[in-house]
């Protein structure tokens, strides 16, 4: 799904969640090649001109999530949980730690030993970043979320300084795990439901749209 389209969907879901007309949501999708800059991002972390990006077929978006610059693209599972933290824990730090735990447990199911690195939000394995996190909260309702590299073409990260850190990135494929993104999505959903104590129901994209209406 296109980034701007996904952004619009998130906004509608957030508004509906704030009104209390829908339960918590977890959107799992893949974006075409996109580079996004967070609210506190530094433009100099974009290493290529927008002109070059356009020629490489990458769109560039400034967005309102936390964190710095990052890349999204095919083979990377992007998760956007729309959760009302008032019904879970009114704690943004606990929320971010729990998202990390969902990803760590997911990777463990594929025999990848991942961990947190103090002060560097995200999920790391062997000193390389495998999943990035950037969240936005409005009236305790979350949006944006995480991006886990499954079969991501890591060469696209050369256009940026990911999250403003000069540390390497990795993917599940690079670590030798051959897996379909759909299977990883199912695993993420299962762990998400367990950690956030939510019963997960699968909705087709169309149903999700209907949920708002």
């Amino acid at each position: 799904m296109d980034y701007t389209e996904a952004f619009r969907l998130q906004r509608e879901l957030v508004a509906a969640r704030q009104r209390g007309v829908i339960p918590d949501q977890l959107i799992l999708l893949e974006h075409p090649h996109t580079i996004t800059l967070g609210r506190n991002g530094k433009r100099e972390h974009l290493l290529a001109s927008e002109d070059i990006l356009q020629r490489a077929g990458i769109s560039f978006q400034e967005t309102d999530r936390g964190g710095d610059i990052t890349y999204h693209g095919p083979g990377q599972i992007v998760g956007y949980p729309i959760v009302d933290l008032r019904e879970w824990q009114r704690d943004v730090a606990a929320y971010v730690r729990s998202i990390e735990q969902v990803l760590i447990d997911t990777l463990a199911d594929f025999a990848i030993d991942a961990e947190r690195v103090a002060g560097l939000t995200g999920v790391w394995t062997g000193g390389r970043k495998i999943a990035a996190i950037g969240v936005h909260i409005s009236r305790w309702v979350t949006s944006h979320g995480f991006a886990l590299n499954v079969t991501t073409d890591l060469s696209y990260f050369q256009y940026i300084v990911p999250c403003g850190l000069t540390l390497p990135v990795t993917s599940m494929a690079e670590l030798g795990v051959r897996v379909e993104p759909q299977e990883v999505e199912r695993t993420i959903a299962r762990h998400f439901g367990r950690i956030f104590e939510r019963e997960m129901t699968v909705l087709a994209p169309v149903e999700m749209g209907e949920a708002i209406l």
Binding site: N40, G66, V96
Partner: peptide, 29 residues
Amino acid sequence: LTKWLKKAGDRVERDEPLFEISTDKVDTE
């Protein structure tokens, strides 16, 4: 405090987003 969404002298409604803060990769209105 990352951003003021209103300027001094501006009219604000109750519960209208006023400013944004950032804590550990989380931006909050």
